[in-house]
Design a protein around this nucleic acid. Structure first.
Length: 504
RNA sequence: GCCCCCAUCGUCUAGGGGACCAGGACGCAGCCCUUUCAAGGCUAAAACGGGGGUUCGAAUCCCCCUGGGGGCACCA
């Protein structure tokens, strides 16, 4: 299969009925990538023909989410373009016009069956263990008579006159030819009784009118794919290249993520909704890298991709049709990778909101100093609070047991802390080059292990058992604060030593 | 029930008849580095779902089975 290098026109066509999730984002991303790679156009089209399911704000969320990811489009509802409008609810008349053409050519027909009757037929078929489908009542109506009933104002829909014999073969770029028996295809409704087109008609008409060359969409469309081919052919249009992407499965690999499961993910610090990811501490760069690699690969060793890399390397031919289980652990890995690739100033900028959110006052200079210390320790941006919050707190609260040195008693720890404080007090400043040599010398002379001495200082100064590098941290905190925190640790240890004494 | 799609380590994947006693990544385990935690380096364990063909030769091609997924609306 030769790579398509001529410019493509592709589209992402979400319906504004819920949150933009990683599956939709990936579809948008792939469309965007192939458009940019080939120098073609990427179009955003809102498929809002179902007024009942319309969710206010959903379109805005889609737009914001895509922008955040770094995916932009050339034509769309927010920026216009030569083939607009780009909202299907504003294209009602266009679809009706095309539906009319089909009726005139006897490729579609009016149907007056009520939803109630349809439902009854469906139930009967189900009870007979038949696959539910339209029974064809109105298909047999005389066209003139049907037209008259329509003129008289009788409620009706328009159905596609699906061939009842033979087979239909459509071609998916990843799967090859797919052939189905026409008799298993239904006489799908093209236009609803409210006059608005259903997806099957609207998408076909728009894809043709908007000169879409490649339809890259989710594989939930595979079952109706033959119908879509049939519709294009009924109009005599050339079909676009069809590409059906794999689906995302839940981490266990057992089925798609349910609504409830998706909502509960947030408790573990994860989400499949793009709107949540920023607040959870994820980088758009990492999201893009992660989702790009679920269903697509470049070669057997490259895994780190920037958007620019992806535009250069992406190809439809290397798409994988098999379903992929979502792996959040790998997501964290990619996030850490991209965090480490960020310039320090940029990382500092992205970390700041998480600190501010905690109510910390963030000094820019301090922030720029601590950022390099935590850069390789961060997997998500919000971890900055846990790892480096002590830099911004006026006081720390070390746990008493963290201050007691391994293999030493509280009393011995207390005495050790006093010696350390004495050294600290004598230092002219707290620069690494000033503090490290005398403290290391002290460790040597004391016969203790570095881990014992530095562990005590760490707990006292940072209030944590684990922290960024100690000497660098002390330099940023400054002598005054270091001494103050050491004194506080001593008082805690003193109390512990006394308690141990009285118990003995 | 019917239709469609898919099938390599736990997970994401490389592999398009011999280069494969199957490679990479995440995770997991161990070691090294190291004041903690990370990061980094090294090592280990870990897969071609089953059965038939085709072929001198199959993870790779074909068929069946099994398993998994998706769909069967006046939703998209």
């Amino acid at each position: 299969m030769a790579e398509t290098l001529s410019p493509v026109r592709v589209r992402f066509a979400p319906s504004p009925t819920g949150h933009l999730h990683i599956g939709g984002a990936r579809t948008a991303l792939y469309n965007y990538l192939i458009a940019r790679k080939t120098g073609g156009q990427f179009i955003l089209r809102i498929e809002d023909t179902d007024r009942k399911r319309y969710v206010a704000g959903a379109e805005e969320e889609i737009i914001n989410g895509l922008h955040w990811l770094g995916v932009d489009w050339d034509e769309g509802p927010d920026k216009g373009g030569p083939y607009g409008p780009y909202r299907q609810s504003q294209r009602k008349e266009i679809y009706q016009q095309y539906a009319q053409m089909l009726i005139e050519q006897d490729k579609a027909y009016y149907c007056f069956c009520s939803p109630e009757r349809l439902e009854k037929v469906r139930q009967e078929q189900l009870s007979r263990k038949e696959s539910p489908h339209y029974d064809g009542t109105c298909r047999r109506l005389d066209p003139q008579e049907a037209k008259a009933r329509v003129m008289a104002g009788e409620p009706h829909v328009i159905r596609f006159k699906t061939p009842q014999e033979g087979t239909t073969t459509v071609t998916d770029l990843l799967r090859g030819e797919i052939t189905v028996e026409n008799r298993v295809l239904d006489d799908y409704i093209l236009v609803k009784s409210d006059g608005l087109a259903l997806y099957h008609l609207a998408a076909a008409v728009d894809d043709h009118l908007m000169k879409i060359t490649h339809v890259i969409r989710g594989s939930e469309w595979l079952p109706t794919f033959p119908l879509h081919g049939l519709i294009h052919r009924a109009f005599g249009w050339q079909e676009p290249v069809w590409v059906h992407l794999s689906v995302f499965l839940k981490p266990s690999g057992k089925g798609k993520m349910s609504k409830r499961e998706s909502a509960e993910l947030i408790k573990d610090g994860y989400s499949i909704f793009i709107k949540d990811l920023q607040g959870l501490g994820y980088l758009p760069e990492a999201v893009v890298n992660w989702i790009a690699l679920m269903g697509w690969s470049y070669d057997d060793h490259t895994e780190f991709f920037t958007m620019a890399d992806l535009i250069e390397k992406f190809s439809l031919e290397r798409l994988n049709p098999a379903p992929a289980a979502i792996n959040f652990t790998k997501f964290d890995h990619f996030n850490g990778l991209h965090i480490r690739h960020l310039p320090v100033e940029e990382l500092a900028k992205r970390i700041k909101p998480f600190l501010l959110e905690q109510g910390y006052e963030v000094d820019e200079d301090v922030l720029l100093k601590i950022t390099p210390l935590i850069q390789e320790r961060l997997h998500t941006l919000d971890e900055v609070v846990e790892i480096a919050g002590f830099f911004f707190r006026a006081d720390v609260q070390p746990a008493a047991e963290d201050l007691v040195v391994k293999d030493l008693s509280p009393k011995e720890s207390y005495e050790l802390a006093q010696k350390i404080l004495k050294i600290l007090n004598q230092l002219p400043d707290m620069r690494v080059s000033t503090s490290e040599p005398p403290l290391r010398q002290f460790v040597e002379e004391s016969g203790l292990k570095p881990a014992q001495v530095f562990g005590l200082i760490r707990a006292a100064v940072t209030g944590q058992k684990i922290s960024p590098p100690l000497f660098e941290s002390m330099e940023i905190i400054g002598k005054e604060m270091v001494v103050k925190r050491m004194e506080k640790a001593i008082s805690i240890l003193k109390k512990m030593a006394e308690e141990a004494e009285s118990q003995a």
